[in-house]
Design a protein around this nucleic acid. Sequence first.
DNA 1: GCCAACGTTGGC
DNA 2: GCCAACGTTGGC
Length: 136
Amino acid sequence: MNYWLLKSDPETYSWVNLEKDKITMWDGIRNYQARNNLKLMKKGDIALFYHSNLGTDIVGQVKIHKEAYQDPSTEDERWFVIDIKLDKKFKKSLTLAEIKQNNLLQNLGLVKQSRLSVMPITLEEYNEIYSICNKK
DNA sequence: GCCAACGTTGGC
DNA sequence: GCCAACGTTGGC
């Protein structure tokens, strides 16, 4: 089981859209590093859902529902998509400002490489984020 | 809206 | 294969 972080601009596709759709195709990846991460995802893996630009916070988690397949929106065989499935909305979102203040999360791709839209996270990072976001 | 960081493209 | 120019992303 691996853990990931997916970034989405809520003006394009937000958590609210996902709550309506339940399952969605994660398309539009046009970056090799992000693409390579997509191809490593396995069904059932967990991904945190981050809102970029507006909110700049982690709002919930999704599960990988279908592993990488050819992006139907292009003939170009280099690009892939995955399907994700709504899993759990967090009780409290975690903002980028809070992440930057958390010693355990300093190596998160979000902090180190802000432009990458699909990135792996470690189990330790996942556990830390999950526990902060689901505290009573 | 600005700007830093980074990716891509194309000339040589 | 290098590098300048340009485009895009995303935080602020």
